[in-house]
Design a protein around this nucleic acid. Sequence first.
RNA 1: GCGUUCGUAGCUCAGCUGGAUAGAGCGACGGACUUCGAAUCCGUAGGCCGCAGGUUCGAGUCCUGCCGGACGCACCA
Length: 591
Amino acid sequence: MEHYIVQWKSVVAARLNAFAREKGLLGYRLSPYEIVAEKPPKPELGDIGFPLFSYAKQFRMAPAQIALEIANREHDMRADNVGRDWPGNLKAVGPYLNVYLDRTQAVDYLLAHSEESSWGTSSLFNGRKIMVEFSCPNTNKPLHLGHLRNNVLGESLARITAAAGAEVKKVDLINDRGIHICKSMLAYLAYGENRSPEDEGLKSDHFVGKYYVLFNKLKEEDPQAEQKAQELLQKWEAGDPEVIALWKKMNDWAVEGIMATYRRQQVSFDEFHFEHDTYKLGRKEVLDGLARGVFYRGEDGAIWIDLEDLGLGKKVLLRKDGTSIYITQDIGTAIMRHERWPFDELIYVVASEQQYHFKVLFEVLRRLGYDWAANLYHLSYGLVNLPSGRMKTREGTVVDADDLIDELTRLAAQEIVEKDRSEAVGDIQSVAEKIALGALHYFLLQISPNKDMLYNPEQSLSFTGDTGPYIQYMGARASSILRKYEQGEGNASRGTSGAALLASDADWPLVRLLLELSSTVEQSARTKDPSILAGYAHGVASEFSAWYRDNPVLNNDDANLSASRVALVRAVQSTLRRASELLCMPFLEAM
RNA sequence: GCGUUCGUAGCUCAGCUGGAUAGAGCGACGGACUUCGAAUCCGUAGGCCGCAGGUUCGAGUCCUGCCGGACGCACCA
């Protein structure tokens, strides 16, 4: 259904236009889209506020005067509400025109729809095919905290985009070739003695990562190590069977381990692309572009593009020897993807360090004549830093993904025991891991994607305050009330729920907030920013917390009031459940 | 040097297309568990929104300059 703000914008536009005609302002016509609406700072000021300052000039009247003129029209008032989903009253409040929604009708709507599977969805992106590329790990080491941010951003964005109506395809490009893998291989040859991850008791990707780190040791012992890694890469490209076999063995270990972390983090993909398949793609496109004069061959023999006019300098697209580089394969991969699944938008979730790369990539595709290049989007997110600065592999300051989830799970399990909730939650380990994911994902999503973020271990391991577990806790409390109701506690089952009983000042802030789920999902989808939804989820939890403190649900003598409040708690549960799902936070009935 | 981006309370962060008195959490201090779960709630203290101009009826938000941080400016990915 149309959002109430959208509806009332058109009412205000119609009224302003009518007033303009009365005043003889011919040709003056406002569209609803031009109307500025905002949320009044206090509930007693109404539900929507329309500032009228900007109309003062045209009407040659003070804004407060216009507000009075527009608000006090009885017959308009009736007309406004005919056939409307969101009836209400207009009042002049100083220079503002404020809408007071009919609360009973709004509650009716909430109770009628919040249990539906479509709750929190929208039709904003109906009919659009949107591809989201994220994660894209290297196969020489396990995932770290930076990947966790990438993964949850991509997964959450995909879910939000789908909730906004799009058909979404999640894709992952596994970087399974290149010099970094050769380094792990070389170190394994030097120190591995043909051992397997099982032999060393390590998760397979950690095993591979261990040898990547050992490459540094190798370099100290063998000054030729870098050189040898290069040779290994050349042998790999030449298809040397022995090298390929080793690569396959180590690569499978790495990928297997990475997939296990995905499952644990509850992120998934519809398609995997592997760089060893895609790295040769794009070469033909670049040569075609050369033939058509889009690119040029430099004196060095390599193929270049000149982007000086855009301030992007010159960039090599294909080496002198005809081999591909990073951008070559990205060109080919994008084209291949669009051919197979003609998307309306392709979102690359990649760290901000690669902004230049994507500017160049998109421009190359545009100049090659692909008009869909305009629909490519780089969702650039900031780096995750430590209080001591950037994570560095060599200094061993990298926060490992599996270790972090382990640690969070351990702490959550400890909390469960300390709070004496072991019996109530049942499977402690399973619930603890869900709390850990809630804490981790909320921590990573609450910050605007474009900002660098600080990972402060102490703070991020906290489960109190503005955290995922706080939201999970409120969901669990709502669930607990509903569970008791089902078990027959209180006298709500003897009463009848009625919207009018939930229209008081005490209920209204919560009701109105719950009604904003779908528009918040839309806003998050439009701006590609899950942090907006994260803030909303926290707001709902916090509002619910304040509400149920003051408004007894089951312990209530009035059976009808009790039944009505149970219905509202259902709406809260449903809303928190939906928001949590979109934020990759497991919803818990008990914790 | 050039480009991108960030700068809001002691710390970590919100603040939607410019609109009503700039908000949370943590930390500090003081309160609330014989009533639906205290991973909670209530209260107090804490702000030249980096600085200086400009646009506007109105600027934390837009523009310009400066200061400070991050990232980028590879035939690496």
